[in-house]
C-alpha cells in the first residue's frame, strides 16, 4: 500500500479512538471508566503519531509515543490511587458522589428523590441519650441516600 492511503487510514483510526475517549471522559460517571477513556485518547494519539512518523520516514513520532506511554502509565497510577481512596471512603465509583465542592448558587445533581418521610431526622424514643449527639455531615448523608 502506498504511504498516503496508509497514513489516512491510520489517522482515521487514531481520530476515532481519540473521539471515543473524549466522549467517554465527558459522558461517563464511573471514575475508572473516565480514566480508561483518558487512556484511550492517548492511545488514539499514539496511533496517529506512529502513522505520521512512518509517513515522514523519521523516528521523531515514535520516540514521542514512547514518552507518551510512560506519562500515561504515571498518570494512570496516580489516578488509580485517587479512585481507590475515593472508593474506600464512599463505597462507590460514581463521580456524582463528589460534588460538595461547587459554587454556592449551583444545586446538587440528584438522580432520584427519596420519599419525604425517609429524609426526616431519625428519632430514638426508646433510648436514653448517652453523651452528645454526634455531628453529622449533611452533605454526606444526602449523597449516600440520594445520588
Amino acid at each position: 500500500m502506498s504511504s498516503l492511503p496508509l497514513l489516512q487510514n491510520a489517522l482515521l483510526v487514531g481520530a476515532i479512538l481519540f473521539s471515543l475517549g473524549l466522549v467517554g471522559i465527558l459522558a461517563r460517571r464511573n471514575l475508572i471508566v473516565m480514566f480508561l477513556a483518558a487512556e484511550m485518547m492517548l492511545q488514539g494519539i499514539s496511533v496517529s503519531l506512529v502513522a505520521w512518523s512512518r509517513y515522514h520516514g523519521d523516528w521523531g513520532g515514535q520516540i514521542l509515543v514512547i514518552f507518551v506511554l510512560t506519562v500515561a502509565a504515571c498518570e494512570a497510577a496516580i489516578a488509580l490511587v485517587f479512585v481507590l481512596g475515593a472508593f474506600s471512603r464512599t463505597g462507590r465509583l460514581d463521580a456524582a458522589a463528589w460534588q460538595s465542592l461547587r459554587e454556592a448558587t449551583l444545586g446538587r445533581v440528584i438522580d432520584r428523590e427519596l420519599p419525604a418521610s425517609d429524609t426526616l431526622p431519625q428519632k430514638f424514643p426508646t433510648l436514653t441519650p448517652a453523651g452528645v449527639l454526634p455531628e453529622t455531615d449533611e452533605d454526606e448523608l444526602l449523597q449516600r441516600e440520594h445520588v
Binding site: 465527558l26 485518547m41 485517587f82 463528589w98 460538595s100
Partner: peptide, 22 residues
C-alpha cells in the same frame, strides 16, 4: 474535600493533556 479536589484536578488534567497532545 482534599480527595475531591485531587480527583477533579486529575480527571480534568488527564482530559486536557490528551487534547493538547492531539
Amino acid at each position: 474535600a482534599a480527595s475531591e479536589a485531587a480527583i477533579k484536578y486529575a480527571v480534568y488534567g488527564a482530559g486536557a493533556a490528551g487534547i493538547m497532545l492531539y
